[in-house]
């Protein structure tokens, strides 16, 4: 399999040169194949979320080389990182990061608005995803009025609305009970079978031990290790 994500000697330092400088990642070398399902594992503060943010084009590394789908992202300005992120990445967050006052449908279609996708197409694309994820009956509900499990599925739908090849999920089951976590992994498994590249961060046994996860990558104090 060809590598979809290639990181070479990646460092990330926050507040560089200041008294509160933090080296979150140190010399990361990593390749992730297209269509694989990977879990980044490590304790809190180990650098999992930072690594996910670099893969997700949220910010560039401080040094080193990061290439996603053949594109060298290390030195791209923010504008191009955003363009690449919206074309290739779908994000699922630990706390869902939905806008509570917006309806379920409006939350899901948020990534389509700056692309100039018309309201009818937005509705249709959202409807298909909501149907698939079993939240079609909640389309007009404000996000603040639905349950945690439904919120998670709304977040998944929003991540999939652009049909990105890569899905990133940061501690996706941290606020879900066992049943909902299992359901989430079922959906991830389906997406994996559909050919998506899925990268999760977690220290939840349910995820790290899930049969759909093909590879575990350990992180400790900003460095990779074999778990």
């Amino acid at each position: 399999m060809t590598a979809l994500i290639e990181l070479s000697n990646v460092d990330k330092t926050y507040n560089q040169g200041q008294v509160n400088e933090v080296r979150a990642l140190k010399g990361i070398n990593l390749e992730i194949a297209a269509g694989s399902m990977v879990c980044l594992q490590g304790s809190s503060g180990s650098g999992k979320s930072t690594l996910l943010a670099i893969i997700g084009c949220v910010f560039p590394p401080t040094s080193g080389r990061a290439a996603i789908a053949g594109k060298q992202l290390s030195r791209l300005p923010d504008r191009f990182l955003t363009l690449h992120r919206r074309a290739s990445i779908g994000f699922i967050f630990q706390r869902f990061n939905l806008l509570p006052e917006l309806t379920v449908q409006d939350n899901i279609t948020l990534p389509l608005m700056p692309l100039g996708v018309g309201p009818r197409e937005r509705r249709e694309r959202a409807a298909r995803l909501m149907e698939r994820l079993g939240i079609g009956h909640r389309a007009g509900f404000p996000a603040r009025q639905i349950s945690g499990g439904e919120l998670q599925r709304v977040a998944i739908a929003r991540a999939l609305i652009n049909d990105p090849p890569i899905i990133l999920a940061d501690e996706p089951t941290a606020h879900l009970d066992h049943a909902l976590s299992l359901a989430f992994m079922e959906i991830m498994g389906e997406l994996h079978r559909d050919g998506k590249t899925i990268i999760l961060t977690s220290h939840d046994q349910l995820i790290t031990g899930h049969p759909a996860v093909e590879r575990l990558i350990g992180l400790n104090d900003g460095m990779l290790h074999v778990p």
Binding site: T82, F91, L98, L110, M113, L115
Partner: peptide, 14 residues
């Protein structure tokens, strides 16, 4: 909200 918009693909110009 602005952070969420940007992470889901809205640019600074948007």
């Amino acid at each position: 909200e602005i952070g969420i918009l940007k992470i889901v693909g809205w640019q600074t110009a948007d």
